[in-house]
Write a protein that binds this DNA or RNA. Structure first.
Lengths: 140, 140
DNA sequence: TATGGACCTTCCCATCATGGTAAGGTCAAG
DNA sequence: CTTGACCTTACCATGATGGGAAGGTCCATA
């Protein structure tokens, strides 16, 4: 099948399929006489694997490792689990960072009247008036 | 003061200060005879504003708007609040996405023995054996 | 058979925020 | 006068993806 059909079958854009080939994530596709790339069931299977891994947030390099493990009949599930746990830790770190931002911002939003006047704790906070502590600063 | 000192004072790298100038986020700095950039209190204040906004995850374009509002004595806090709420919504979307990934992965991790054998639900799931439903699939 | 349209090819550029490096200018202290 | 710390511009890289140009292939239909 041509790249477009492989793309439709896997949800990976033709652009990215070519890219994955160019960086060696997947083997170079067979070519027809027309020089068009030709994909078979195994290729589609691999692309589906990649798409699912991408959907779970794995980086290309992590996926490279996952593909190697997938093809290794002697792999230990320990290695897969370790790789995955490392990725989960990355996700946790990102979530924590975004969560802190969200918490700070939603506190500021709560304190902002949102009316026609210019006075705004959000702008003031960015301007460096004071760090954002808790709502109960004056109780200590 | 020179760019290095402004950088140290604000936590914005000299590299990024020049970059912000090049994209018009901040006005072109004054120059000394040596052609070195020269920063004053107002510049440092603005850079601090930018750094805090970056720390809260605002994009450069959002910061452009925030700077405009900051400098506008006739701004309405409504506008600031709206901009911030839009950003919080973006954060929520990202957090939700990462959270879904995390949930799926941690379920798979739980199901993976992590021993010397190759059998691994993580790899199998990526290979497309079956979609990940809940642990209680068979209860309905 | 010719043409049109859907598909493919490679190549280059853009995103976003940031960092690295190279080649060279400036300045103050020793 | 040298050394070292600082500055300048200019170019390239990241990671994953998309856009577009210029041109080749293939099939159906007029």
């Amino acid at each position: 099948m041509q790249i477009g059909e492989a793309s439709r079958a896997t949800g990976v854009s033709a652009k990215m399929i070519r890219h994955y080939e160019s960086i060696g994530l997947i083997p170079a596709a067979d070519r027809r006489d027309s020089n068009y790339r030709d994909y078979g069931a195994e290729d589609v299977h691999r692309l589906g694997f990649i798409r699912r891994a991408r959907d779970l947030g794995f980086s290309i390099e992590e996926i490279r490792d996952l593909l190697r493990l997938w093809g290794d009949r002697k792999r230990s599930s320990r290695d897969v689990k370790a790789l995955t746990l490392a990725h989960v830790a990355e996700l946790d770190a990102k979530i924590a960072l975004l969560g802190e931002m969200r918490a700070t911002l939603s506190h500021l939003v709560q304190c902002c009247d949102g009316d026609n006047r210019p006075d705004c704790p959000i702008i003031e906070s960015l301007a460096g008036a004071a760090p954002i502590h808790s709502k109960h600063m004056h109780r200590h």
